[in-house]
């Protein structure tokens, strides 16, 4: 736990949420793992040849195939009689997981591989320059869903991948936030101790893409949870088994701290949009019973 398996010197921005996620995941997993990463920020910042931040075995193949590559790693370990040698973990961004890789992920989940798939969710394509993904929240301005004269930014809510993963009837689905490091470590430990496919989605604020100072990453992450915009829970075979209760804050506290939502506070009709976002938070709170 004291040992750092994700080495400093990577090329992440100061305050990078994805790098914090990777560090916490490896603290939870220990060194007997094989990590598979799809293309994305984490892959790029962690592996500038001839250097690597990974002190554990790591492979990057392509953007949409990490779940399938991990499936190959897992069956190879089984076939070679090396199953006890390593736990197989995928660490991928929301674009790779929730958009382009969802087919491969669904295949991995339904086939029952003993793999922990972890999505670090920073809610847009950060590596390519902050384009909208299906995990981008309602109202966020990105470079492909920009706020403009006739647009409030992203006009669809976040795709609910934890629910989609849970619908596969897998033994463990959980959400977490890097703002709660002990919770992340605990959930990673738990996930890898369970046989079968597991899905974790870790909220990982991106200072560059969301527009906040790199010293505030943890603070922003905490606000997402405290406003109920990112509910923290665990589920087993499709049933919610635990939730993180919060003393709820209004969504404005979270939104006003980020450039990607700043237009909502400036333009005509913004208030109505803020109300819609509050409705999303209220609905989350109700669905999961988040209120203390």
């Amino acid at each position: 736990m004291q040992e750092e398996l994700f080495a400093p010197g990577h090329r992440g921005c100061a305050g990078c949420g994805a790098a914090i996620a990777a560090r916490l995941i490896l603290k939870g997993s220990g060194k007997d793992v094989i990590i598979v990463s799809p293309t994305g920020c984490l892959e790029v910042i962690s592996s500038p040849y001839p250097e690597s931040a990974w002190k554990v075995p790591w492979i990057h193949s392509l953007f949409e195939n990490a779940a399938a590559v991990a499936s190959g790693v897992e069956v190879a370990l089984k076939s070679l009689g090396r199953k006890d040698e390593a736990k197989v973990i995928v660490i991928g961004g929301d674009g790779a997981t929730i958009d382009i890789g969802i087919g491969a992920l669904s295949g991995m989940l339904e086939r029952g591989h003993d793999i922990t798939y972890i999505c670090y969710d920073n809610e847009a394509y950060m590596n390519t320059g902050i384009q909208r993904s299906s995990s981008t929240p309602y109202g966020a301005s990105t470079t492909t869903s920009p706020a403009g004269k006739v647009s409030f930014g992203e006009n669809r809510p976040k795709k609910n991948l934890p629910a989609i993963a849970a619908a596969h009837g897998i033994p463990y689905v959980a959400t977490a936030s890097i703002a709660y490091p002990k919770d992340v470590i605990k959930k990673v430990k738990k996930a890898i101790s369970i046989e079968g496919p597991k899905y974790l989605q870790i909220h990982a604020p991106c200072c560059t893409g969301w527009g906040f100072d790199g010293s505030k990453t943890i603070e922003i992450g905490r606000l997402a949870v405290e406003t109920a915009l990112f509910p923290i829970y665990e589920s087993t075979e499709g049933k919610v088994t635990s939730v993180k209760k919060v003393k709820r804050k209004p969504v404005e506290e979270y939104l006003k701290a980020q450039r990607r939502f700043s237009h909502l506070f400036k333009i005509e009709g913004g208030e109505e949009e803020l109300k819609k976002i509050q409705d999303i938070a209220d609905s989350n709170a109700k669905q999961f019973g988040l209120d203390q």
């Binding site: 195939n65 399938a68 991990a70 076939s79 669904s106 295949g107």
Partner: peptide
């Protein structure tokens, strides 16, 4: 006595081979 993976696409078929081969398996 092979692990036989019924994949979701040819893209995944080759990707499973990539992961397995990189782990030291004949695929």
């Amino acid at each position: 006595a092979s692990e036989y993976v019924r994949v979701d696409s040819e893209h995944s078929a080759m990707s499973v081979c990539v992961g397995a081969s990189a782990t030291g398996a004949r695929t």
